[in-house]
Design a protein around this nucleic acid. Structure first.
Lengths: 192, 192
DNA sequence: GTCTATAGAGTGATAGAC
DNA sequence: GTCTATCACTCTATAGAC
């Protein structure tokens, strides 16, 4: 109970993941946090503000994580492999937040929505550039950049829907499976 | 206004797609249908009953569509290609229902949930069998059947999130892109 | 920083008239 | 088959005490 603001956020992530944003009440969050519901409003301006905080920090951390993963990697194929690894791992390791980030965008105001979508677009562009340059260099097949970038991202994001941390496969194993599948799909039979 | 029961269902699909199940009220549905909210309950027992009707018919039609697409097709690779085409097309052509089917499962009762998941599992098994047999026959690489089946299905389902019917690509073009990407990913560089 | 109390609106659902 | 009226409840959010 060190930091109540963080406790509330953490409890909210659990509840939004399990029940959904609209199905979760401020009362539920208060109960989970061990305080009265009025006290929530000392830490967050509104329920929407709380959701926005979760979405924003998740998107920021996701982007930071990707950029860090690409820092020292050279060559388009290796960079794409690193990008996929980063994306998959982040989504599995912070499963709940990522699930919320992908399913509760309708819960935020129009202005906040624009902020999040802008961040998401910038993230997508990094993948799109990798696909485009890879195709230009002949490493990848001549594919539709937009569609393939959505495909790759959704594919990896999907893990956040069904992944169980005590399941059959580790995060590293799942990331490897996706990495190989995606690289093969991008090459479409052309030589490496 | 021919059949009010169908009108209510159709209006609900639009609203659940746009705002989400929990964010949509019976009052909203009544307004959209041009009747009073009490009249909804003549046609459907509850709001949850309405959602379940939508989910159930979507899943049934999806499965029917797949089985029909596979009827006369021979050879594992061709069958997988046909299955992917069927899955993508159905998801793009009935975008709203499919989006709801993939995002509002938390809105139904435990018993109804089991009914839907059972249908979904049976659908997934068709894809898993194709991957498994394909790998046994050496047509596909020796991949993880479960993970790859989830990957393939989510990939195609994703279209329902971003697809716009007046967009740059037709349903047929998108289906072809996915088909090639997936088959390449399944083969992983091995010969056809 | 957390509490009790409550405002004010909206919710799903039902009763009974027509 | 649709209506009006209403029940019983829950919701987000605020006021003001401590």
């Amino acid at each position: 109970m060190a930091d109540m603001k963080e406790t509330i956020k953490s409890v909210s992530i659990d509840l939004f993941f399990k029940k959904g944003y609209f199905a979760t009440s401020i009362s539920d969050i208060a109960k989970g946090s061990g305080i009265q519901k009025a006290s929530i409003y000392y830490h967050y301006a509104s329920k929407e503000d709380l959701l926005f905080h979760i979405l924003k920090s998740t998107m920021d951390d996701l982007t930071t994580c990707l950029k860090k993963s690409l820092e020292a990697v050279e060559g388009i194929e290796q960079r794409m492999r690193a990008a996929v690894q980063s994306h998959v791992r982040f989504h599995l390791e912070r499963q709940k937040e990522n699930f919320i980030a992908n399913s509760e965008l309708r819960g935020i105001t129009a202005e906040h929505y624009r902020t999040i979508v802008k961040k998401r677009d910038a993230y997508e562009v990094i993948f799109q550039d990798l696909i485009r340059v890879g195709a230009e260099e002949g490493i990848f097949a001549d594919v539709d950049v937009k569609i393939l970038s959505y495909a790759i991202l959704t594919l990896c994001t999907a893990g956040a829907t069904w992944y169980k941390s005590n399941g059959r496969l580790t995060v590293a194993q799942i990331a490897d499976i996706y990495e190989n599948f995606i690289i093969s799909g991008l090459k479409q039979g052309s030589l490496s």
